[in-house]
C-alpha cells in the first residue's frame, strides 16, 4: 500500500499485474548530470562568495547601526529594514536590472546574483552581529575600558572574539538559508541548480525527475553544512 502510493506519485501507471510501478527516468537525470554538476558548483560558489561578502558588509552595517552618530545609525537602520522587509526576488531584480547596469555598463547575471544575495545577507548578518555583541556582559567592555583600551581595541580583543563564538549557530543558519534562497537567481538566468531543473523540465516535459534531483542536491548541501557547523560548534564550545 505504501509502495503503491509512492509509485502513484511518481507515475500513476499500472503494469499488467495491477501493481503500481515506478516510472522514474534515471536515464534523463544521467543525461543532465553534467549540467546539474555545473549548477551545483555555481550554487556553492555564489553562496560562499555571498556569505563572505555579506558577513564583512554586515559587520560594517552593524557598527553603523550601533553607532552613537545618527548619520551612521539612521541609514544603516533603513538598510536593514529594506533588505529584511522586501522580497528577495524583488531585490534580485533591482540589482540585476538597475544597479549592475549602472556600475558595470551592462547586465551580468552572476555578478547581480552575488551582489543581491550579499546585500541581503549583510542585513541579516548585521542583526546577528548586533545580537551577539549585545549578549556580552557589559562588565567586559567596562573592564577593558578601565584598563585603558580604546573602544575599538576593546571591541577587537575583548568583545568580538567572545561574540563571534555565540554567533556561529546563527551564521550557520543564515548560510543554509542563503543556499536555499540562491535558487531564486534562476529567475535572472544564472545557470545554477534550479535553472537546470527548470531547463530539464522544459526539454522533456517531466516534473519529477528535475525537481527531485534538485531537492536531493539541495538536501545534500544543507545537510553536510549543518553537520560541518555542528562539528565547528563542538570544537569551539570547549
Amino acid at each position: 500500500m505504501r509502495d503503491g502510493t509512492v509509485a502513484h506519485v511518481f507515475s500513476g501507471k499500472r503494469n499488467g499485474r495491477g501493481v503500481m510501478v515506478l516510472d522514474f527516468r534515471f536515464d534523463l537525470i544521467w543525461e543532465y548530470a553534467p549540467y546539474f554538476l555545473g549548477g551545483t558548483l555555481l550554487t556553492i560558489g555564489i553562496s560562499i562568495v555571498a556569505i563572505v561578502l555579506g558577513a564583512i558588509c554586515g559587520l560594517l552595517v552593524a557598527i553603523g547601526r550601533m553607532s552613537q552618530r545618527w548619520y551612521l545609525r539612521v541609514p544603516m537602520k533603513a538598510y536593514i529594514h529594506f533588505f529584511r522587509g522586501t522580497p528577495l526576488i524583488l531585490q534580485i531584480m533591482i540589482v540585476h536590472f538597475l544597479l549592475v547596469p549602472i556600475f558595470l555598463g551592462s547586465t551580468n547575471a552572476v555578478a547581480a546574483a552575488i551582489a543581491a544575495l550579499a546585500l541581503n545577507c549583510a542585513a541579516y548578518s548585521a542583526e546577528i552581529y548586533r545580537a551577539g555583541i549585545q549578549s556580552i556582559d557589559k562588565g567586559q567592555m567596562e573592564a577593558a575600558m578601565a584598563l585603558g583600551m580604546s573602544h575599538t581595541q576593546a571591541m577587537r580583543h575583548v568583545i568580538l572574539p567572545q561574540a563571534v563564538r555565540r554567533m556561529i549557530p546563527a551564521f550557520g543558519n543564515e548560510f543554509i538559508v542563503l543556499i536555499k534562497d540562491s535558487s531564486l537567481v534562476a529567475f535572472i538566468a544564472v545557470p545554477e541548480i534550479m535553472y537546470w531543473a527548470n531547463s530539464m523540465r522544459g526539454q522533456y516535459y517531466r516534473m519529477w525527475e528535475p525537481y527531485m534531483t534538485a531537492a536531493v542536491i539541495y538536501l545534500i548541501l544543507t545537510y553536510s553544512l549543518s553537520k560541518l557547523l555542528a562539528y565547528v560548534e563542538r570544537r569551539l564550545g570547549k
Partner: peptide, 20 residues
C-alpha cells in the same frame, strides 16, 4: 582619559575576567 585610566586601575565585584 585613556591615559588616566592606565594610572587608575579598577577591580570589580564580578571580576570581569576575559573568559576567552
Amino acid at each position: 582619559i585613556r591615559e588616566i585610566r592606565t594610572e587608575v586601575g579598577m577591580v570589580f565585584q564580578q571580576f570581569n575576567l576575559f573568559p576567552h
